[in-house]
Amino acid sequence: MIHTNGSPTATETPVVIDVNGLSVYYSEKQALKGISAKIHDNKVTTLIGPSGCGKSTFLRTLNRMNDRIPGFRIEGDIKISGKNPYGKGTDLLALRRNVGMVFQKPNPFPMTIYENIALGPKMHYGIKGKQLDDAVEQALREAALWEEVKDDYKKKNGLNLSGGQQQRLCIARMLAVRPEIILMDEPCSALDPISTAKVEELIKQLAGDHTLLVVTHNLQQAERISDYTAFFMFGELVEHGHSATIFGEPSHQSTQDYVSGRFG
């Protein structure tokens, strides 16, 4: 029962994530039921839907964050940049280099701001010294955190930043690895409105040369920041299309009910 009303056509940017008939199980419980979707390059796609509808599971499945959950297994097909992340001999490190992730709760590591950001490039690219310093500075600038921390970012512990700064630090940390695809799991739900505005601004800037998938409960936010929107319910992808269509004239009654605030 998959409808792709207003689904992107071949004339748009290339498909970078191609999901076909994806089902996810936690032991006996089925969390995702036959999801098929094509995510386009250099665009922002928001995933919306009521709690427990599977949108976070979908996001986490893309970069194999669910592997450690007991009883987790998948059926169906995923292709990210042409490769199956669950395929035999998958280079997990390469996958994480290609797909970055930002979480709901800011999760800086218990070390200095510099070390937080340097960790990724050091490991993935083996750079050090001046090159590493530059990479850190660039990531901080891209995450719009540079001006606030430039004086003491080599000394200050990442955990001593404010909530919004911590989230931007996590974004900088993710950007420093230079991923092409960015997954964000409710990145603003723990932030105040001003911090939220900064992160949204950041998302728009990143959309220029990154593919973003953003899970959000905030419908206005979804409308503001996204090119495409996917509506999930009960583990199914109900509707996926241009945000204007989803928020304007969705083809499904449940989508209509959800975006107009009748439930959820």
Binding site: M65, L93, G100, F109, L119, G120, M123, R173, V177
Partner: peptide, 13 residues
């Protein structure tokens, strides 16, 4: 917290 472990996981550690 699990979120910290997830952060490390997502970074490819």
């Amino acid at each position: 917290p699990q979120s910290m472990r997830d952060g490390g996981e997502a970074l490819g550690l």
